[in-house]
Amino acid sequence: MQKSWWKILAVLLLLYTFTAGFLIQVPIIGNLYQTIRNLFFHVPMWFGQMILLLVSMIYSIRYLRSGNLADDIRAREFARTGIIFGVLGLVTGAIWATYTWGEPWSNDPKQIAVAIALLIYLAYFVLRNSMPDMDKRARVSSVYNIFAYFIYIPLIMILPRLVQSLHPGGEGVEGNPAMNGRDLDPTMRMIFWPAVIGWTLLGVWMTSLLIRISKLKEKKWIHA
């Protein structure tokens, strides 16, 4: 096993998240009651997911600059973990919504946007696999990946805030005030941000394993 301090840090941060996340006193807001604790699990995982996809995009840019296929592999595997986190986020969100919004899928703008975004990222893999030529595949899919991230962030972070949304930040409808910054309880913040780092590092760990597998498999094509 490749021993790294950040793998240990990931485990410690998540142990802290689970323990403190279950045991601290939380403010009772609206109809959330104890489900506000999902703010330590569902939301930080989404933050981690966005960071993983950001790293994927950065590796795509690096590939276009360097032409090094190893960078393309890194971009691909980060996108893969990003999709897995995304699906988990969608499912956990649906569970949470069932008991606070009344139904698992209420066509909330953020839910729809995220579903579209996941399709965009799945199309990234369809695109990749449609091209047998390795260099062409790497170049075209890198460009696509950069495009995908720049449509992803407005889709999930900006558009839902411009319309009525049940998610925090939306207009009109009384959404969950959770991540308002203004009224996020300070003790909750002490768990929230370590959780973001913990989930991100766990994702990086999983991705690093995928990258190492790919490198073993595709060794003959990589010159780095």
């Binding site: 096993m1 760990w205 999983m206 394993l209 190492r212 073993l216």
Partner: peptide, 18 residues
């Protein structure tokens, strides 16, 4: 975590063989 560690170990072994 135990599962991840196990996969990590197996991979390291494979990498050494390669």
């Amino acid at each position: 975590v135990a599962y991840l560690i196990r996969i990590d170990r197996k991979l390291s072994k494979l990498e050494k063989q390669n």
